[in-house]
Design a protein around this nucleic acid. Structure first.
Lengths: 113, 113
DNA sequence: TCAATATTTCAATAATTGTTGTACTATTGA
DNA sequence: TCAATAGTACAACAATTATTGAAATATTGA
């Protein structure tokens, strides 16, 4: 992952509202949600939500598909995975000894041994 | 990791300059760098750098120790590890099937099989 | 066809964040 | 002790980002 892509992701998730939107869509699974459902769930005006959905989509964190007059948004999990890989490499790049700790934290996050 | 801590990290890394500072300090290893070295390396005015160092430190991404009249900054790798864990859990929480992909990306990032 | 619905675009404004220069504090070394 | 150095704090300003309301676009269902 290129640095400027990582930066775009950080910029996107640096707003509490956008982070809420993204987390909501992650929890909503593969079906995602249409804009109105997000607006209702988070109690944001449609105009403001649209502004933030656009930012998240342009950063690649969301995908949109039109369904009639609805716009369905989904979280782009693969990009998040790439970000995790990037962060791991950034941390370990010059510091091999740091990788041990990261590998330990991965074990903690894992469900199966 | 609490959501508002993750948000603080995202906010910190949402500036190109702050991301550069953090990456520089990660690459600099356990000894870190003093403020003047960072200022010279990135060609930022001391005042402006101080502003961003403060932001990074308050978010917990950097630690500072005084050495005489110098201030030595180091990247806080454990926090980054916690962020990676958080992101992994956020992504996989409601979507177990997503974990397979993340586990695949982890293998790619791993150096040993 | 047409009123209702879903969402976005645009312009105006509010709020936040980034940058610069000057002044200040603390420490060193002569 | 005192001039030089390292860094931060503060205030002013510039620039960016967030929020709102009104208007526009597109789609549906009656």
């Amino acid at each position: 992952m290129d640095k400027h892509i990582a930066l775009a992701v950080f910029e996107s998730l640096s707003s509490g509202l956008r982070l809420d939107v993204f987390r909501l869509l992650v929890r909503s699974g593969p079906d995602g949600l249409v804009a109105g459902e997000i607006s209702a769930a988070l109690d944001v005006t449609p105009t403001n939500l649209s502004f933030h959905l656009k930012a998240l989509t342009q950063a690649g964190l969301l995908t949109v598909t039109q369904e009639g007059r609805y716009q369905r948004y989904r979280a782009d999990l693969p990009l998040m995975q790439k970000l995790i890989t990037y962060l791991t490499e950034e941390c370990c790049g010059g510091n091999p000894e740091c990788c041990f700790d990261i590998s330990a934290s991965r074990k903690t996050a894992d469900t199966n041994p």
